[in-house]
Amino acid sequence: MEESNTLTLKRFIILAVIAVWVVFAMAPLVWLFMSSLKTRLDLFSMPPKFIFKPTLHGYEALFITTYADGTRKVSEIIGTMFNSILIAGMGTILAVALGTMSGYAASRFEFKAKGDFMFFVLSTRMLPAVAVLVSFHIMYARLGLADTRFGMILLYILVNIGLATWIMKGFFDGVPRDLEEVALVNGYSRLWAFRKLVLPMVKGGIAATTGFCFIFAWNEFTFASIITTTRAKTLPVRISAALGKEGLDWAMVAAAGILLIIPIVVLFYLIRKHLLMGMTFGVLGKKE
């Protein structure tokens, strides 16, 4: 039977349950946003205030540090943000570049131990970060990479390269081989065909992969919490440092949380069509 638009009882119940879930899913984010705009008094009032006079004091506290003697300085959060953008950004670009190359190779060529290679690549996504971190900690200290942006970029390539390879392989699989074969038959080189024919066709795929990798790098905490201390500190580490302290300026922390979330929300919106692929290493949701 066709979907009728009449509001039957069954339909009403279904929509009601969905509505409840939407509220559950969205309320914490709305609450966080509201908190970032509250004064200290409003924050801790009970019952909680849903209507209040918004203030940007949390955001101000986040960006400007006021010292005891009354001097005001731009807070270190600016440097932290710069670190996060640079490290996540560079790590993402490199991971996507390498993943695009290896994904293409995996999609088009047969090579020795291909299955093992792909499994090996996939394993980077399964690894418990904390377990490897023990060794990384030592290795990075010896190599002088600890608390360097370069070291962190290297790490974030590692975090994302498996994902990038698998998703990109999925996108390349969706591009018909004839495309390159025609070019090869006509005397063009494989590299030319890759650059001029295949890459333009997976532009959307590359964009989506970039989105995913950036989100994961931007959110990454476990590695960053140990490898970075000051110079290369990223936003999640900075926020977590605030967590332990009691009597904390929650509005400021909430503001930092919002700051961290905004780029994710934007990227999430842009890559929404590819979510399935991104969350399952391209195992599901392939677009043929």
Partner: peptide
């Protein structure tokens, strides 16, 4: 709405932990 309710999984666990701790 479907896209909207998928969002939480993309957020930073640190921030998620943060506002749940608050709530």
């Amino acid at each position: 709405i479907f896209t909207m309710i998928l969002m939480p999984m993309m957020l930073s666990p640190i921030v998620v932990g943060l506002f749940w701790k608050y709530m």
